[in-house]
Design a protein around this nucleic acid. Structure first.
Length: 277
DNA sequence: CCTGAAACCTGTCTGC
DNA sequence: TGCAGACAGGTTTCAG
C-alpha cells in the first residue's frame, strides 16, 4: 500500500501528532499483543515481546517505505506492504479490530496499533538496522543524487524504466502510483529501456519524481478504498487508475497495460515509445 | 542480467 | 442472488 508519501505522512503523525493520531514519542512500552504471528519477520514471538517491554520510543523516522522506530539501542522496523496502517489509540480503548495484527501498549494507557488486512506487512526488531534496510537504493530527495549520477545509474541497467523505478534497491520509496505519475509528468513511456533515456529525459524524470512525491506528501498521501486514511492525492492522479479518461494535458484516452504483473497507466501521446528531442 | 509467473493474503467490484 | 474472475498501493523466489 503505502509508498513514500503515505509512509512519510504516517511517520510525521507518529512523531509530531496529526492525522488523528497522538505522538508516540517518549512513551514507554508496557505490553505487546501479537495477534498474527507471521507479522514478525525476524525474531520469535516470545523473545520479541520480552525485548520490547520497557523500551522507550526515542524517535520515529522513515527509510524508503519502512517506518523506523528508534528504541533504546535498537530499532523497530515496520513495512506496511499492501494494506498496512498504523494508528495511535488513547483511552477509552475499544476492543481490537478484525485486522489488527500487533498492538503495542504504553505505560500511560495509550497504544500503537498495526492494522493490516492482507497480512503482507512485516515487523523487524534489530540492533542493526542495516541488516534490514541495507540493500535499499538512495532516497529520492538525497541531495547527493545529482542528475549526472541518476543518468549514470539508469544506464548501468537495461530494465524497463517502470520496473527499474519500482526496484527498491535502485531508488527507495516509489511504488506503482508514483512511478506511473512520475513517468507521465516526465513524458516517458513506461516500457522504455532505462539505458535508452537521454540526459535530458533522465533529468526530467528525476525532477518529475521529486515533484510528484512532494505533491503526494503535501496532500498527505493518497487514500484509495479502505486502505489508507486521510490523504487527498488520489484527487490529483494524472494517469493512475484513469484508464479511458482523457489525458489532462492532451485529451488522449489514458491506456492501461500490464508490466511486471503491475497495472501500468500512461498517455500514448504524451509518452511515446521513442526518444523525444 | 532481465522478464514473467507464482506465492503470500483479504476484500471489492464487475459481469454473467 | 450467487458465483467466478479480475484486480488491488509490495516483495521475494524461481523458471526460462
Amino acid at each position: 500500500m503505502p509508498e513514500l508519501p503515505e509512509v512519510e505522512t504516517i511517520v510525521r503523525a507518529l512523531r509530531n501528532g496529526g492525522r488523528g493520531d497522538a505522538s508516540i514519542l517518549h512513551r514507554r512500552i508496557q505490553s505487546v499483543d501479537l495477534r498474527w504471528a507471521r507479522t514478525l519477520a525476524s525474531s520469535e514471538a516470545g523473545e520479541f515481546e520480552r525485548r520490547l517491554i520497557g523500551q522507550e520510543i526515542n524517535d520515529v523516522a522513515r527509510r524508503g517505505k519502512y517506518v523506523v522506530i528508534h528504541l533504546d539501542g535498537e530499532f523497530l522496523l515496520i513495512h506496511l506492504r499492501m494494506s498496512g496502517d498504523l494508528r495511535v489509540e488513547t483511552p477509552p480503548l475499544a476492543p481490537p479490530s478484525t485486522h489488527d495484527r500487533l498492538i503495542i501498549s504504553f505505560t500511560d494507557g495509550t497504544r500503537l496499533v498495526f492494522n493490516d488486512t492482507r497480512k503482507f506487512g512485516r515487523v523487524w526488531l534489530t540492533k542493526d538496522m542495516n541488516s534490514v534496510t541495507g540493500s535499499l537504493g538512495p532516497e529520492p530527495f538525497d541531495s547527493g543524487l545529482s542528475p549526472e549520477i541518476f543518468f549514470h545509474n539508469l544506464h548501468s541497467k537495461k530494465k524497463y524504466i517502470k520496473s527499474l523505478l519500482l526496484d527498491q534497491s535502485f531508488l527507495a520509496g516509489l511504488g506503482n502510483i508514483y512511478v506511473d505519475e512520475s513517468l507521465h509528468r516526465a513524458n516517458i513511456h513506461p516500457l522504455r529501456p532505462s539505458n535508452s533515456l537521454s540526459p535530458d529525459e533522465s533529468g526530467r524524470l528525476l525532477e518529475a519524481i521529486r515533484k510528484t512525491l512532494t505533491d503526494g506528501i503535501n496532500n498527505n498521501g493518497a487514500s484509495i478504498d479502505w486502505v489508507y486514511r486521510g490523504g487527498d492525492f488520489q484527487n490529483n492522479f494524472r494517469v493512475y487508475q484513469q484508464t479511458g479518461k482523457p489525458c489532462l494535458v492532451c485529451g488522449t484516452p489514458i491506456e492501461r497495460i500490464v508490466s511486471g504483473q503491475r497495472g501500468t497507466h500512461f498517455c500514448p501521446r504524451c509518452q511515446p515509445k521513442g526518444v523525444v528531442v
